[in-house]
Design a protein around this nucleic acid. Structure first.
Ligand SMILES: [Mn+2]
Ligand SMILES: [Mn+2]
Ligand SMILES: [Zn+2]
Ligand SMILES: [Zn+2]
Lengths: 132, 132
DNA sequence: CACTTTTTTAGAATCATTATAAACTAGTTA
DNA sequence: TAACTAGTTTATAATGATTCTAAAAAAGTG
């Protein structure tokens, strides 16, 4: 398996569950956005084993902490995650409740002029809401 | 009371509870950010009557629908609202868990180059996360 | 294998938010 | 003012995403 080293290097034991989740999340050309429940469905479909919901939560949070996933700030009852961890932005289609990537090159350079004393900028994220 | 007409014009009956909430939310020079629970505390302090939590939720959602409040997209266990309904952006201080306004003039113009078929841009919001 | 540490798991707990449905109130008309 | 209706408030229950718990299982080490 190609994810064993990646996990070991992160200090995460390469368990069967984590490898399966890696496979669903990262073994694809395209990156994607998901909620925990959507991921659970995807795991059920693509593998034939069932991973407990607690493990899915634990793993997603562990991967997020290691920088393999990003959480997307959005007002939704469920938290959205992104397998695209490069700096980029999002459209949010209010009707479909779907996220669409907006690459940095699709947004002009963003220059934050205001400074806050003693604080550093960690990230700059643009959310563009779409309606009909 | 100065909010009676505002409510009537919005098709909302000017009840005692709504007028009290208006007073807490809008009868001030400065705009501010709040969660439902922070608002409940503020109401308790500033008025001497107790408004039921359900009414606070109902009223905030009614005001949001009428455009008197905005919801701020952020990953937090509680939903944040803003009495500043002009187009503007936010810093989010990760340590203090506090929002700080970032006026349009503090951010260069944002030009979204990518277009989505059949969709219109409703809003463009920038969230700048701050760390130590 | 023996031993330790990490991980998984089912189920319980938490907590923000929403739903319910009965009591109350504002606005309207007689 | 009384009667009527639609809208509102309220206490409380329900919902649902997420986190917690603690026991069992698995991984790593020698
Ligand atoms: Mn997380
Ligand atoms: Mn709302
Ligand atoms: Zn994305
Ligand atoms: Zn604001």
């Amino acid at each position: 398996m190609k994810y064993i080293e990646k996990l070991r290097n992160s200090g995460l034991r390469p368990t069967k569950q984590r490898l399966q989740i890696c496979d669903v999340l990262f073994n694809t050309d395209k990156t994607f956005h998901f909620t925990i429940n959507e991921l659970e469905q995807k795991i059920k479909k693509q593998t034939n084993s069932k991973i407990s919901l607690a493990t899915v939560y634990n793993t997603v949070h562990a991967f997020e902490k290691k920088g393999y996933l990003k959480q997307i700030p959005i007002n939704s009852s469920e938290t959205y995650f992104d397998t695209n961890v490069t700096d980029h932005h999002h459209f949010y289609d209010l009707k479909e409740e779907k996220l669409i990537d907006l690459e940095n090159s699709d947004v002009g350079p963003i220059n934050i002029l205001k400074k806050i004393n003693g604080k550093k900028i960690k990230s700059v994220e643009v959310l563009v809401k779409l309606e009909e």
